[in-house]
Design a protein around this nucleic acid. Sequence first.
DNA 1: AAAATCACGCAAGATTACTTGCATAGTATT
DNA 2: AATACTATGCAAGTAATCTTGCGTGATTTT
Lengths: 284, 284
Amino acid sequence: MTKDQHMSVLEKIAESSSNLTPNERLMVQAVIESPTAVALGTANDLAGSVGVHEATASRLARKLGYASYAAFRDALREEFIATRETATRFEKTFDGTVPDSILGNLALQEAQALGQVENAISAEQINTVAERLIRADRIFIYGYGNSEVLSLMMSKRFRRFGKDVHQLDGDPRHLAEGALGMRENDVLLTFAFRRPPRSYEALMQTAREAGTESIVISGNRGAILSPQPDHLLRAPRGGDADSFQTLVVPMTVCNAIIVAAGSQNKDKSLQELERLGQLIERFD
Amino acid sequence: MTKDQHMSVLEKIAESSSNLTPNERLMVQAVIESPTAVALGTANDLAGSVGVHEATASRLARKLGYASYAAFRDALREEFIATRETATRFEKTFDGTVPDSILGNLALQEAQALGQVENAISAEQINTVAERLIRADRIFIYGYGNSEVLSLMMSKRFRRFGKDVHQLDGDPRHLAEGALGMRENDVLLTFAFRRPPRSYEALMQTAREAGTESIVISGNRGAILSPQPDHLLRAPRGGDADSFQTLVVPMTVCNAIIVAAGSQNKDKSLQELERLGQLIERFD
DNA sequence: AAAATCACGCAAGATTACTTGCATAGTATT
DNA sequence: AATACTATGCAAGTAATCTTGCGTGATTTT
């Protein structure tokens, strides 16, 4: 039965569903209801969740055609857990369709990543950062490589807020010049994804010495930045580390900062989220 | 103490990052690169993946402040694996409750908009546009206002593909100069959101006369552009027309083009979507 | 109603996964 | 150069997890 190899767990369940025992049926139900939970748990967890003995779970796995309970669980993981390699398939649980185009695929990945962004960054962090930027005497923004795109975006926006923005570029000399100009009450905004930007360390050091507060917007890598900035906004980007990592997630973080900054800047009374829609219009 | 409870794995990593041993650092790196994979594996898997002994993985978990390797792994799962609950919560936010933070709100809007992008733009359109860009002698890119951000991004990417890219800016004189240089087998890529960019009409006219194919990436507004470009990629952005309109959707369209262009450019055999992950890695 | 069959818990055994004391080799310190 | 310290593999020990033979009670068959 090479066919077995390629059959989804749910197909196997469907196939065997006619000769399952009552308890097995219960467990199968649990699997259908929350496959991810089962995929992470032990045989005992599954059995326990429906009040039967773990042995019965073990037997179920076999009955469905798996070599062991472990194999069964692996199949569940394969099918229901978004390892980044199988990100596309994950959405099957989401609404049943798998996009078959590059665009659809990307859109899906991004949506997924956006779904988790709130876990990574709190409203408070956004507000604090926005407040620092709005209060700053001058804003220094540094992004190199792909981040330059975000750097440009933030520069534009904050200039429109009337801030004095200095966009630093990758050229070491410019950078040094810019860094030298930093003072207390300035703020330094930096982006760091794949690897910390060139001269990250020097830049942060200088900022610290100058009394300039530092903000870094990063992907997961941000966790191992050294030195750590005063404010770190770290949100995982979609996709695998090995795959195409876009700027959608960090861009959304930037947008949130912009909106927050706008609301702090212009009109306190509009801060209520109810009116977010009307509020943010002004900043487009 | 209680703080530990609420710290994310990556925060803990950040905290300890300064006194990690070389091997521990390797493992931490692996965690950052593919947290899901690690979240599913055993201590031995993680250790093996960087060529160290499982004992070292066990010790790392302790060092990061977890009671055991199992606890460490649970934390990773908690943080990186979209359990059914997270999925449904996201789904719920999709058409029910409103998240109560700016960031959450934005993320939601974007995700919604992304969900529809496939309806607006077909795989074929993406491929056609990608092919035109890759085949072009020279690429002229024009984006003004906020679109300059996308313009910059596309310029960077296509330069990395080895293309001869001319980024036009808003200054009318530059624009005129650029436009004059257009020839047959060149391609003009333009962005148009809120309103058509200044001199849109003149630019398109010139392109047409020069035999330069034109591509426009736009929001809904694109439908009423005049003159119409040879290729129009139109996708509604999130939110209502009155609210904050971000570049996330058009950026995703651009990313899809980049990926498609990459696959056409480099290695036909990798075009299959199965391998999207590995494929697109090259272009980050 | 007796016999056969089946489901399933129990518990012992088997396997897999994690931890830890110890030895060693490398590095830092004096 | 000698000493102390640290990182880390090894391997034995412990814990978690899975499997399976057995017995009991329920259900079906005759």
